[in-house]
Deep mutational scan, measured.
Amino acid sequence: MEVRTIKVFTTVDNINLHTQVVDMSMTYGQQFGPTYLDGADVTKIKPHNSHEGKTFYVLPNDDTLRVEAFEYYHTTDPSFLGRYMSALNHTKKWKYPQVNGLTSIKWADNNCYLATALLTLQQIELKFNPPALQDAYYRARAGEAANFCALILAYCNKTVGELGDVRETMSYLFQHANLDSCKRVLNVVCKTCGQQQTTLKGVEAVMYMGTLSYEQFKKGVQIPCTCGKQATKYLVQQESPFVMMSAPPAQYELKHGTFTCASEYTGNYQCGHYKHITSKETLYCIDGALLTKSSEYKGPITDVFYKENSYTTTIK
């Protein structure tokens, strides 16, 4: 009895394709271990004539594949690729409408935090270190965002349907971005203890939790000093293409032309909904596939993004 075979390709990165001759009487799992086709788990399936010449994702289970996976995804987590594939199996079914010149995501599976993050990423200057993220990001900007969303979920250790947080998501993504040249110098002034300067680099240099107003941050924000008295913390120097200011959701007025974009969060910790506000020729609110415009805006804002380049204080 002759062994019926077909020729397929296996890959971990969709760049390096490895030619395989597979036995049609055995499952993919018996031949390769966990195997995925377009995100779908085909591990328990036997090869079919229609699979001839198709590319299958496999887990990096030998040295060659491990090197290829690390170079593309910059992670050695053995569960990463499987999590990416199972997320992709959902995100490829989502709709990605162009809204006001940006790629958004039609609401499904509690994905409003991903839509808000995706919209924000198209408006701030950011370059990702893992080629996987950078490639998928370019495709997302062009309207094909399924891979990018699935990668975000995998890097953030999230599953489809789980509630997510924009600030946490951005923080994970910033860790995989090139923020080497970003720098922030802060000064804390206390009447009792004097003053202390701190220099922050990388992710810490672009994120701040405690106030939404970048102007206020430049002037000074009140913080408790270690001595128990009130101290003032203010920005001395900022070198970065953008800054992200966050605070627990509270009524906040966004003035046209003073910011790049913002995240609105309605609801409580267990259950809520994100919308995205962007400042173009007027203010726009993007909620999944829905767009509304207004000249002014007041609502429960939790993150505001500002364009920056270089700032030095005039406070002496």
Rank of each mutant, 00 (worst) to 15 (best):
Q134M: 11
V8S: 06
K280C: 10
S79N: 06
N100T: 09
H176Q: 13
A205N: 00
E281Q: 05
Q175E: 10
F80P: 04
Y208I: 07
V99E: 04
L290F: 11
G272P: 03
L179F: 15
N100F: 07
M170W: 02
N110I: 03
Q134G: 07
R184G: 10
Q20G: 12
Q20H: 14
P131S: 04
T75I: 11
N89K: 14
Q195M: 15
A289K: 06
L163W: 06
Y138S: 15
Y138A: 12
A289H: 14
L212H: 04
K298S: 12
A250K: 11
T169C: 11
L173F: 01
E125M: 06
M207F: 07
C285S: 07
A117H: 03
N268E: 11
Y208E: 10
L235N: 01
R83E: 05
T120F: 03
Y137H: 09
Q216F: 05
L283Q: 01
V189T: 13
E52R: 12
A136Y: 11
T5G: 08
L65Q: 06
V3E: 12
I277W: 09
I15S: 08
T312I: 09
Y84F: 13
I277H: 04
C227S: 00
L153R: 02
S295H: 15
K233A: 13
N147T: 12
Y138W: 12
D77A: 07
S104L: 06
T266Y: 09
K106Y: 10
V206H: 01
K218H: 04
V160Q: 01
L133N: 03
A142P: 03
Y208V: 09
C285F: 07
D165F: 05
S104G: 07
E215N: 10
T11N: 06
F217M: 11
G267Y: 05
D135N: 12
E68S: 09
Q98Y: 06
L114F: 05
G161W: 02
L133C: 03
R4M: 11
A117P: 01
V166L: 08
G228H: 03
Q196V: 11
C156W: 02
L200E: 11
P300K: 07
R141K: 11
L290N: 14
E308G: 07
C182A: 09
E296G: 13
K93T: 15
G228S: 04
I277R: 00
V3A: 13
L119A: 04
G53N: 15
A136F: 09
E68D: 09
C261P: 00
L114M: 09
I286C: 01
S246F: 00
N61S: 12
K218I: 06
T19Y: 12
P78S: 12
C182K: 02
Q122N: 02
Y274A: 01
G143Y: 02
Q237M: 10
L126Y: 04
E253Y: 08
E162K: 04
V42M: 11
K127D: 14
P241Q: 14
G53D: 10
T312E: 15
N268S: 15
G228L: 02
D38Y: 09
Y265F: 12
D165N: 07
A231H: 01
T314W: 10
L186H: 09
P60L: 08
T226A: 13
E239K: 15
N268M: 08
E215C: 07
Q195S: 14
T159R: 14
L59F: 15
S295I: 15
T192N: 13
G210S: 02
I286K: 00
D63L: 11
E2I: 12
N178V: 07
L126S: 01
I315V: 07
L126W: 02
A69V: 13
L121V: 13
Y138L: 12
D63I: 07
N14R: 08
T302S: 07
S25V: 07
G210C: 02
C182M: 05
F259Q: 00
P249T: 01
Y137W: 12
Y73H: 02
V221Y: 08
K293G: 07
G228Q: 01
F32N: 08
Y172V: 11
T292W: 07
N61T: 14
S294W: 13
G53H: 15
V304S: 00
I277S: 00
Y84M: 06
T266F: 13
P300S: 15
L119W: 01
L291Q: 11
Q230T: 11
C225H: 10
M85A: 06
V206S: 01
K95T: 08
G257E: 07
M1I: 05
V243K: 00
N89G: 12
Y214D: 02
R83I: 05
A146G: 07
N129P: 03
K44Y: 15
I124Y: 01
S310K: 08
D23C: 13
P224I: 13
Q197M: 12
E71I: 07
H74P: 02
H48R: 11
A150T: 03
N16M: 12
E215T: 08
C227D: 02
I286P: 00
K46M: 07
K95C: 08
P97G: 05
E162A: 08
Q197R: 14
E215Y: 06
T116F: 04
C182H: 03
L102R: 04
F9P: 05
T266G: 07
T211Q: 10
Q230I: 14
N89D: 12
Y57G: 07
Q175F: 06
Y297T: 01
N49E: 15
G101K: 06
Y73E: 02
E52G: 10
Y234M: 11
I45M: 13
E71K: 11
Y28P: 05
G272C: 00
V243C: 06
Q122C: 06
E215D: 12
Y72L: 11
G228C: 01
Y274Q: 01
T159S: 15
V58G: 05
T11W: 06
Y269K: 07
N309A: 15
R83N: 14
Q195K: 11
S104T: 07
M245V: 02
I6P: 07
K218F: 04
A262W: 00
P78T: 11
N111A: 03
A142Q: 15
A40P: 09
G257T: 05
G143S: 05
A146R: 06
G29W: 10
Q175W: 07
N268V: 06
S213F: 02
L151Y: 05
F242Y: 02
F174W: 04
A140P: 04
Y234C: 08
N110P: 02
E168N: 09
W107G: 03
A262S: 01
S295Y: 08
I45G: 13
K280V: 07
K298Q: 15
A154W: 03
F70S: 15
G288H: 01
Q222R: 09
G101P: 03
Q222W: 08
E125S: 11
H256D: 06
A115L: 04
A262E: 00
H18P: 06
G164P: 00
K280N: 15
D23N: 15
L291S: 14
L291I: 14
K255S: 08
Q98F: 15
Y252G: 00
Q230N: 12
N49P: 13
H51T: 04
T258L: 07
F32M: 12
I45S: 14
Q123G: 04
T55I: 08
G267L: 04
T232D: 06
L254F: 00
C225I: 00
L17P: 06
L114T: 03
C261K: 00
S86T: 11
A250Y: 14
Q270V: 12
I15T: 12
E308W: 06
T75A: 14
K44A: 06
V8C: 13
M24N: 15
A231Q: 05
T192V: 09
H18S: 09
G39D: 10
Q216M: 10
I105S: 04
H74K: 08
L133A: 03
A231L: 04
K127S: 13
E253Q: 10
C261D: 00
P131C: 02
K46T: 13
V203C: 11
K229D: 11
A117M: 08
T198E: 15
A154M: 02
L179W: 06
P248T: 08
C193F: 01
P97D: 05
E308T: 09
S181V: 08
A140T: 09
Q230V: 12
H276G: 00
A205P: 03
I105N: 02
L212R: 02
C190W: 01
E281C: 02
T282P: 00
L290G: 11
V206I: 10
C227L: 01
M244F: 03
K127E: 13
P249A: 01
P300Q: 14
E162R: 03
I45N: 11
T232H: 09
A132P: 05
D287C: 00
A117N: 01
C261W: 00
L102A: 04
Y265Q: 02
L102S: 04
K54D: 12
P248M: 09
T5M: 11
L88F: 08
Y311Q: 08
P249N: 00
S310Q: 09
Q195H: 15
E308C: 10
D180H: 15
G101Y: 05
T43L: 07
T266P: 00
L17T: 08
K293H: 10
K280G: 13
T169R: 03
K293D: 08
K44I: 13
M244L: 06
Q195L: 13
